[in-house]
Design a binder for these strands. Structure first.
Lengths: 341, 341
DNA sequence: TTAATCAATGCAATCGATTGCATTTTTAAT
DNA sequence: ATTAAAAATGCAATCGATTGCATTGATTAA
């Protein structure tokens, strides 16, 4: 079999042209110190010799990897994969590489991944924390050493960093208000774990809307769970067994909204006539279910783009003085059949 | 502000313990040459000194990155994100990092990404090629240098490598046969670009099923396009304008199946009564649309796991002699309402 | 023409871990 | 106790690109 031909290095090029390796290095990096003619000749020779820069050597020397780490709860989830897609889009344009991991909503895995990415010297980290996560030492690892950090969606208040969120409170408020506008009096809610601010905010928005409308807020009208398809079924079952049945439900995601709709239909209720439903996130299925699910659209791709832009600008600028900002991306209440008779 | 405290290196540890750096290095890597007691002491000191290995230095020296590159057409696509999820799952267990890029189905981007990943010295590459891709020099880059390569789904016949596919031919055959079993006589097809073998195979399976059933194969009964939602609408419109209207349609993906269903419903046709539909891929929405779409389920997560296993085993074993195999993963025809009256 | 200035290029150290080979220490056997 | 064998550790080169500083060559002003 063929033996690996050894890679050509800048030293080989230098030798071939009878110049020094430093000049070659500078020329290839378009350093203005090098004369145009020299640069041209060097680049041409490099081309001819099939030179491929050894990125690892450069990274090692410069202490930069041009790599952005990303941790999401689950890659295989429309919102998150959209965000990743946006991140990758921007990162690629700027010459960065994106390394992706999923926490599976487990703290332990998130912790290990963070350490791995740290050890791999990613230039920055973009993440949305796991449902389980309640302590943040693994993230302080980054912030303590001034490695840029950007949170999106599921953010951490305790750590100073750029954060990208949507106006969960406002969106939930408008969703609930919309249900009330439809004449509903008993608006229940299926909510997520309250240690995550997004779910807390959605719930607060829901409560505020009820209060502002002068509707009684009855605690039994809210069920919190982890928002899976199965948990959704348990939740809707519980809600329908309560003494005062709801005539509308605001769900903290579309998955549980779907659970609710299917359960209700199977049990002889009509959606939206008997019970109106609004979800959150605008999953691809929401548009095509019958009835189509009214929901809050979150701009996943844009969030990803913004996150990448923020982290790259932090990576590139030396000044670590930057004020950290929390950016709120716009949402849109999409009204479909599930909430309007 | 605080100044960056310099990282501790193995030399620092060596100095602290008055031993050599090589011993430290070996101890930390659990090299059996080092005595148990020594190892223990070293590890403890490393811990105390807050030692963090410089992965870049190690990578540079060992010429391995423990990184697997992945290129998919679009991250934000259920099948692909499922595969990625599977890849990440296995890679993580084995201590590998996964770098992900999307080609957006553009050859040019795929080409650039491949070069970037190559320059970054990924230990292996897993990919599903872009619709546009017709030449493979950017992939030979890897195969020529014995860098493991695994194709999945959209494979390349011209390059020797492990390949993971599903039995597109058989699945399409069964899907078509299923439609014929329902008494349909004019089964049309919405197909993909034929330069991709998966679409070629699906089309061949469809044709074979028609022939075996003694049904006339009428060329006007097939429309090929790039299988987007919009193209699906164009395709179904074209099919319905043809002189002999179909009474069933096999679609090469669920997206176009959905296009067809929505178009037909808007235009007064009943699905499945007037026209039966079968899709391909089992997208999340397919189950919940009305009517639910009959489709072929592809095990994305499993494909990802298998791909990762294959590439890692290649990376770890020195022998480059391995016979390349093409693994066919099982599919399942899921019969739902869209094809059965 | 000569010194002074600026533009190009070269020298050599450096980044931190790994590893083949040499050397020392320990263990076992006589 | 002595030596051979085995086990543990150390030495020093190495990976390839980068970069501060030194040096050379070219240009300009006096």
């Amino acid at each position: 079999m063929m033996t690996q031909k050894p890679e050509t290095t800048i030293h080989d090029i230098a030798k071939a042209l009878n110049i020094s390796a430093s000049t070659v290095s500078r020329a290839l990096n378009d350093n203005p110190l090098i004369r145009e003619a020299t640069r041209k000749k060097i680049k041409q020779t490099a081309e001819e010799m099939g030179y491929r820069p050894n990125v690892m050597a450069a990274n090692f020397r410069t202490k930069r990897t041009n790599t952005i780490g990303v941790i999401v709860p689950l890659i295989n989830r429309h919102f998150f994969s959209s965000v990743i897609s946006g991140i990758e889009h921007v990162a690629y344009q700027q010459g960065f590489t994106v390394t992706i991991s999923q926490s599976n909503d487990k703290f332990e895995k998130e912790d290990k991944i963070a350490h791995t990415l740290f050890a791999n010297r990613v230039d920055g980290l973009i993440l949305s924390i796991a449902m389980e996560t309640q302590t943040y030492d693994h993230l302080k690892l980054f912030s303590d050493r001034n490695i840029p950090l950007v949170f999106f969606d599921r953010i951490v208040d305790e750590i100073e960093a750029h954060k990208i969120v949507v106006d969960d409170f406002g969106a939930a408020y408008r969703a609930t208000q919309h249900l009330i506008d439809q004449g509903r009096k008993h608006v229940a809610m299926i909510g997520g774990p309250l240690n995550l601010s997004i779910y807390k905010n959605r719930q607060d928005g829901y409560c505020k809307a009820l209060k502002d409308a002068g509707l009684d807020f009855d605690n039994s009208g809210v069920v919190n769970n982890s928002l899976t398809r199965e948990d959704g079924v348990k939740a809707i079952r519980k809600l329908m067994k309560a003494p005062s049945k709801p005539d509308a439900i605001f769900c903290a995601n579309d998955t549980t909204a779907l659970s609710a709709i299917l359960y209700l239909q199977e049990n002889g209720y009509r959606v939206p006539q008997d019970i109106a439903i609004v979800g959150f996130s605008n999953e691809p299925f929401s548009e095509v279910v019958t009835p189509a699910i009214s929901t809050i659209k979150q701009p996943g791709f844009e969030i990803g783009k913004k996150a990448a832009e923020l982290i790259i600008s932090q990576i590139l600028k030396k000044e670590k003085t930057a004020k950290f900002e929390t950016i709120t991306m716009p949402t849109e209440l999409i009204i479909r059949k599930s909430s309007v008779v």
